[in-house]
Design a protein around this nucleic acid. Structure first.
Length: 1040
RNA sequence: GGGCGCGUAGCUCAGCGGUAGAGCACUACGUUGACAUCGUAGUGGUCACAGGUUCGAUCCCUGUCGCGCCCA
């Protein structure tokens, strides 16, 4: 049955995918030769938030190319698939969908119901994603599909697995090793999701910012000489001030100021360091006073040089406050609204005043309990509070002002007006990468990984080359980040994720807080702390030493274990509660219960998604069980991923795998560029600027998309979607299809020569014809180049080689050369060679274009195996026949010369011309004799006669000879002169350049011999050709 | 401000010491046994700029200008 005219991608892709599936083609170890070396890639698990975008298509194409390439080589190959639960992102998507559907909100629903709802979202998204990957032809072992939350306690049926156990085990182990700790720290707080996020999840976005300048009056009406000097020390301003000027972009945080800081070297403020000043906002009668302190942090040259210190709402201020023992007053709640809890403002302010004056010291918990938001601002959004604060200060005359010309709208009169000074500057503001809202630094209790303690092996592994990062620039970035690594905040106040396996003791915690309080009361009362009970002191010391320390904390894999530990650790029998609230309610019913039982409740927080995905390599292979797969495939071979998640994921996998199993997770990391949208913007799920790869696949076919991806995968670049290019590679598939069609129409795959034509090993001696010997050599070159490129992860080079070989050599020339050979003595070997060459095309292209190649493989013969398990060729230079190579290149250049000449002389394409052989060396004569039919056919020559060139002929100069096309009366002499002159000009230029170099003694002395030889050869060739053109021009001059 | 990287044909990008490349676009012309999703032949580049190293620089070094990205 003759082949269709075009490849029907849509129909064939589904059919072939099913066929692969039916034979288990992608199963781990499929097609492996006995004793084969393992090759394993872990898929970067897509988030179960929706569907895949072009970035995923790109990423997975590259992985699949490597995997198919290795599988065909007979390696024991595993491509491990799966998805990531992606805590915050998935929770966000689910909540969004719930809102769209008009469902109950998350909080109305409750934790249990909500997580079940997210599991549904997971199921849906997972199906979409896996479907997309399959359409892409991803040859993952689908039977091993993993999920980062498989086996979680609330997982529905069908979500079994042990990933959750692995995550929890690692948390417990790291906790026991002291690598995970809990502490009250300033963290990035996302007011939308009401959770802490890590530094990496914060995006700095430039916004139009405003800076206000306010006067903080000195306490008690004190004054000082304020002196400003220029660089030379000349006094430029001297005045008596009763205030210190502060600039701020966040006036609402003034309410929580604990101090004003100036640089110790700043002479302007030296007189007032140590004094108190007044925060110019809040009820008059309870204005708070705060100390003016010296610290290295303020930059004397920026603003007024004085900085307000709000330790609870700014990272720099927090550091200053910690150094100086300044209290950090928290002003906002989890939604970044001004706090509405606690005692009224006057009470809070009174306590804060006592602290500022040094009359009182507070515990952290006490500081946190103080709400310094004035009653009229409580409950307001932070931005509304900001407006009011500014208004209040300004109306009181405490804003720094400037004179501005203004026009009265009614009278039109011009007058000068004092208006508050507001600088308009662009500023970088932190935003949540998911929520896009402004991040609020927030003082909260969180869990941290002590990354500084586990970073060293991860650095060493790359430095020593045990893990290689490609491109090398990625290594620099990796070092830079890891060498300056910050503690990793791993707790998230979300519901979707691995709940932290920690239980707190309610009673003991409360007791400790009481003890702390009483201790501070004793010390404030001037009592010797030694008077406080020994037991409390001992506990306090431990509390102080380890933050919240281990006291009252049970970390265990599950509740049963937690119970055992609690029984061993505490004298009173443990009682477990799901939440702190339940435990408190239980205690409130009968306060003496706390003396009879240890009340325990679980930490409600979940782990950062990256904590679990950081265990992807071992977790998907069954760890902590010592599975055969873990033994065989770990450490894995290559990780292919985007450079953007080098820190998020790659670095953390390195650290965690090394910390947990003391091995690198992969030998090579291939970082690729980012897929951008048309404007160069990063494509992201939440931004909505994604392009659905399925649309591209529907229009152009998977193979075209994949080949485009490979072709654009140059190292270090970015990838912009270009549909024209995809169309170009779709055309390439058509080209291959039609070359096959030609072969089929010419009986290449006929029953007769079949057995012979499909032997994978073709031996040069079996093939006599130069054309066939040549294409066999070209095939070998292509195979070598493709392997070389793929070995070095040069996907674009591999694609380029294949494109040029298949289109530029096989289709453009070999098929044409073969046409006249289809009859006559070389017909059998030509058919055999063509069958072999096309087989090689299918084999070499299969990793890039699996569908069309598998289809052609199946259409062109009865095969022992599907192409997906085809044997990757290993032949090499031994198939290259240099003589055949030289001869065919000569033939090609002769044909090109003739065609070019004809076109420029406007010889009608259809016209067959006689040709004269003016001069030709022996090699040329032999070449002509062997390839006459081809040349005549392709250059449209009808005869060759040995003769001198007549007047009015086109000259065709090639290596070793000159031909002429007699066209007297037909050609335009001037045109031919121009053509020859143009060629001659270029040759002359080249000759000048080449001989210039050769005449330079330094060149001859310094350059390598092969370069000198090459230059000399080139010069001779150019000179020979120039001579021929000169002769031709001279003849034309005679004629003209 | 610190780090990484990029300025090559009209466009999108390869190449990174030895006489400038691809695809698309553009121009002209369409023949012989697959292919118009095609064929043939062309047009088009001071390889951002200025210095330096070298026999030789698009490639290495320094600086300048312009543009990204990451981290402050």
């Amino acid at each position: 049955m003759p082949m269709e005219k075009n490849f029907n991608a849509t129909e064939a892709e589904a059919r072939l995918a099913a066929a692969w599936d039916a034979i288990g083609a992608f199963k781990a170890g499929a097609n492996a030769k006995p004793g084969a070396e393992p090759f394993c890639i872990m898929i970067p698990p897509p988030n179960v938030t929706g569907s895949l975008h072009m970035g995923h298509a790109f990423n997975n194409t590259l992985q699949d190319i490597l995997v198919r390439w290795h599988r065909m080589q007979g390696h024991d190959t595993l491509w491990q698939p799966g998805t990531d639960h992606a805590g915050i992102a998935t929770q966000m998507v689910t909540e969004r969908e719930m809102a769209k559907e008009g469902n109950l909100s998350r909080r109305e629903m409750g934790r249990e119901a909500f997580t079940q709802r997210v599991w549904q979202q997971k199921k849906k998204s997972r199906a979409t994603i896996i479907g997309q990957l399959k359409r892409l032809g991803a040859s993952c072992d689908w039977s091993r599909e993993a999920f980062t939350m498989s086996g979680a306690p609330d997982a529905p049926k069908g979500e079994e697995g042990n990933f959750h156990d692995a995550v929890i085990k690692v948390f417990v182990d790291l906790y026991n090793k002291g690598l995970i700790y809990r502490g009250k720290r300033l963290v990035n707080w996302d007011p939308h999701f009401e959770t802490a996020i890590s530094d990496l999840e914060v995006e700095q976005i430039e916004v139009a910012g405003h800076m206000w300048h306010f006067k903080y009056p000195l306490a008690g009406g004190a004054t000082y000489e304020y002196v400003e000097k220029d660089e030379d020390g000349t006094v430029t301003l001297r005045e008596t001030r009763d205030y210190i000027s502060i600039a701020t972009t966040r006036p609402e945080t003034m309410l929580g100021d604990g101090a004003v800081a100036v640089h110790p070297s700043d002479e302007r403020y030296a007189p007032i360091v140590g004094m108190l000043c007044e925060i110019p906002v809040g009820p008059k009668e309870h204005r708070r006073l705060i100390p003016i302190i010296a610290d290295e942090y303020p930059d004397p040259s920026f603003g007024s040089g004085a900085v307000k210190i709000t330790g609870a709402h700014d990272f720099n201020d927090y550091a200053v406050a910690k150094r100086a023992g300044i209290p950090c007053y928290r002003l906002m709640d989890t939604r970044a609204q001004m706090r509405a809890d606690g005692a009224p403002y006057d009470e809070a302010a009174t306590i804060a005043m006592a602290v500022a004056k040094g009359e009182k010291t507070l515990t952290e918990a006490e500081v946190d309990a103080i709400n310094l938001v004035p009653d009229d601002l409580r409950g307001l959004d932070r931005y509304e509070a900001r407006k009011r604060v500014i208004d209040q200060i300004t109306s009181e005359g405490l804003a720094v002002t400037q004179l501005v010309k203004s026009i009265d709208k009614e009278t039109g009169a011009e007058h000068l007006e004092l208006v508050p000074l507001v600088d308009q500057n662009k500023m970088m503001q932190p935003h949540g990468d998911r929520s896009k809202v402004v991040i609020e630094p927030m003082l909260t209790d969180q869990w941290f990984v002590d990354t500084a303690k586990i970073v060293e092996p991860a650095l060493e592994a790359v430095r020593s080359g045990r893990t290689k990062i490609i491109p090398a620039s990625g290594e620099k970035t990796y070092y830079h980040w890891l060498e300056n690594i910050e503690p990793w905040c791993i707790s998230r106040q979300l519901w979707w994720g691995h709940q932290i396996p920690v239980w707190y003791t309610l009673g003991r915690k409360l007791a400790l807080e009481d003890a702390e309080k009483s201790l501070s009361q004793h010390s404030q009362a001037g009592e010797d702390v030694r008077l406080v009970a020994d037991g409390i002191l001992k506990d306090m010391a431990e509390v102080r030493r380890s933050g919240y320390g281990d006291i009252g904390i049970i970390c265990a894999s599950n509740e049963q274990e937690a119970r055992k530990k609690a029984e061993a650790e505490f004298e009173l029998p443990p009682k477990f509660f799901a939440t702190e609230e339940e435990a408190k309610a239980y205690l409130a019913e009968d306060p003496t219960r706390g003396k009879r039982e240890t009340l325990l409740y679980r930490d409600p927080d979940v782990l950062d998604t990256w904590f679990s995905s950081g265990l992807w390599p071992i977790g998907t292979l069954g760890w902590p069980e010592q599975t055969p797969e873990l033994q065989k495939y770990f450490p894995t071979s290559v990780l292919v991923t985007g450079a953007d998640i080098l820190f998020f994921w790659v670095a953390r996998m390195m650290m965690m795998q090394l910390a947990v199993v003391d091995q690198v997770p992969f030998h090579t990391v291939y970082l690729h560029g980012l897929v951008r949208d048309a404007k160069g913007k990063k494509m992201s799920k939440s931004l909505g600027n994604v392009i659905d790869p399925l649309e591209i696949i529907d229009e152009y076919g998977t193979d075209a998309l994949r080949f485009t991806n490979a072709a654009m995968a140059s190292l270090g670049g970015t990838l912009k979607l270009d549909t024209n290019r995809i169309a170009g590679y779709r055309n390439f598939t058509t080209k291959l299809w039609n070359a096959t069609r030609f072969a089929e129409m010419n009986g290449v795959f006929g029953a007769e020569g079949m057995a012979q034509s499909h032997t994978s090993a073709i031996r040069s001696p079996d093939v006599q014809n130069t054309v066939n010997r040549w294409i066999i050599g070209e095939t070998a070159r292509a195979r070598i180049a493709v392997d070389d490129a793929l070995t070095n992860f040069r996907f674009n080079d591999a694609a380029d080689v294949l494109y040029k070989f298949v289109w530029g050599k096989v289709c453009d020339w070999y098929v044409e050369f073969a046409k006249p050979l289809m009859d006559g003595e070389f017909a059998p070997e030509t058919r055999a060679t063509m069958a072999w060459v096309l087989d090689q095309c299918y084999l070499l292209l299969h990793p890039f274009m699996p569908f069309i190649t598998e289809e052609l493989w199946g259409l062109t013969g009865q095969r022992a195996k599907m192409l997906v398990h085809g044997d990757w060729p290993s032949y090499g230079a031994e198939l290259i026949d240099e003589k055949a190579d030289a001869e065919m290149n000569w033939v090609i250049s002769l044909i090109e010369e003739i065609r070019s000449s004809r076109t420029q002389m406007r010889v009608p394409v259809g016209l067959k011309l006689p040709m004269l052989q003016v001069a030709l060396d022996d090699k040329g004569r032999a070449a002509w004799a062997r390839n006459q039919a081809i040349i005549c056919r392709l250059a449209r020559i009808d005869s060759l006669t040995e003769a001198a060139a007549p007047k009015g002929a086109i000259t065709v100069a090639v290596e070793g000879g000159t031909f002429a096309l007699p066209l007297e009366g037909v050609i335009d002499i001037a045109e031919e002169k121009a053509r020859l002159s143009k060629g001659l000009e270029k040759l002359k230029k080249d000759i000048a350049s080449l001989s210039g170099r050769l005449n330079n003694p330094k060149f001859v002395a310094s350059a390598p011999d092969e370069i000198i030889d090459e230059t000399r050869d080139n010069l001779h060739l150019n000179e020979a050709e120039a001579a021929k053109l000169q002769t031709a021009l001279a003849r034309l001059a005679d004629a003209g």
